[in-house]
């Protein structure tokens, strides 16, 4: 296709958009709403994943060994733990070291516990890292059932809740986005259909004077593409502004020492690209549906 022809198709597509006024407005709005939701969830999911990543290093299971276990039993237990599926790393912390750490952690007041050194009340501990934080729960459960294990301890609740929340965010996002996606595609398809009907005579004449099918179809693809791209302007603008503000205000003061939200320059570019792509795909998809159904060329 020649550049001149492409220029013509773009001009025609643009003209159709203007001509269809209200339907253009409706379909662009649908794309806008959809992309706003897509963008918001994308930022949410990226941050939740980032949060999970940050925590990942801290996901460990503390295995308390029965005090009456012999050295041989401990060794036996260590090999058994290593064999539990999903275990990444096992470190042994003898009870003496545990007590040292405990006393050290108390600072000055720790000296009151110095006497405990005679009769150490602590257990020997294995610190186990799971390969995937999501599986900490299972790993801990399996270790708990081994002999000579007195107890296991891990941040089960927080993690389960976090992972459940992540999943919920993903599912809700996916359902919402799918619904809005189809609405947008449907509205775009309808807008294009209106154009096709309005231009029926023109299309018929184009066929008589020897226009190729692709020549006839192009303006409709361009129209869809433009509808999709128009729909992503507002969401990108709002998210860039909104997330920027949000980050300025609470991004670095989350109340959690170890966690900060992702900085805008990292996420917004990716989000904008995604929205642009989704907008364009939805637009072309919508026009493709109408062109196939209503444009018998």
């Amino acid at each position: 296709m020649r550049a001149r022809t492409l220029g013509r198709h773009v001009k025609e597509g643009g003209r159709n958009i203007v001509r269809n006024g209200w339907m253009t407005f409706a379909s662009v709005s649908a794309v806008t709403v959809m992309l706003l939701v897509v963008g918001t969830f994308m930022l949410l999911i990226m941050n939740v994943n980032h949060f999970a990543d940050t925590l990942e290093g801290d996901v460990e299971v503390r295995v308390f060994v029965e005090r009456q276990a012999e050295a041989a039993d401990q060794e036996q237990l260590e090999t058994e733990i290593t064999r539990v599926p999903g275990v990444d790393d096992v470190a042994f912390v003898p009870r003496e070291e545990g007590l040292d750490n405990f006393i050290a952690s108390l600072g000055d007041e720790g000296e009151y516990f110095e006497t405990l050194r005679e009769e150490n009340p602590l257990n020997d501990v294995f610190v186990v890292q799971a390969e995937e934080p999501e599986r900490t729960d299972q790993v801990a459960g399996q270790i708990d059932s081994l002999t000579h294990v007195e107890d296991v301890e891990y941040g089960s609740n927080i993690f389960n809740q976090l992972f459940a929340a992540t999943d919920l965010v993903r599912i809700v996002g996916l359902v919402l986005i799918t619904g809005l996606l189809f609405t947008a595609v449907f509205l775009i398809a309808n807008t294009i259909k209106l154009t096709i009907v309005a231009r029926k005579k023109e299309i018929q004449i184009m066929k008589f004077v020897g226009a190729t099918n692709s020549f006839i179809r192009w303006p409709f693809f361009i129209e869809g593409l433009l509808l999709g791209i128009l729909g992503c302007i507002l969401p990108i603008g709002l998210l860039v502004y909104g997330y920027g503000r949000f980050y300025d205000i609470i991004g670095q003061n989350t109340g959690l020492e170890f966690f900060e939200f992702l900085p805008p320059q990292v996420v917004l570019f990716q989000t904008a690209i995604l929205l642009l792509t989704v907008g364009a795909v939805v637009g072309v998809w919508g026009s493709l549906m109408s062109v196939r159904k209503f444009l018998r060329v």
């Binding site: 022809t5 004077v209 020549f215």
Partner: peptide, 24 residues
């Protein structure tokens, strides 16, 4: 006749040449 009412005489005829990608 099958002329396009939204175009003038010149455009109606030029239309047939645009379709075959002739130059301006």
């Amino acid at each position: 006749f099958k002329l396009l009412p939204s175009m003038n005489v010149f455009e109606n005829i030029a239309f047939a040449m645009e379709v075959v990608e002739a130059s301006k």
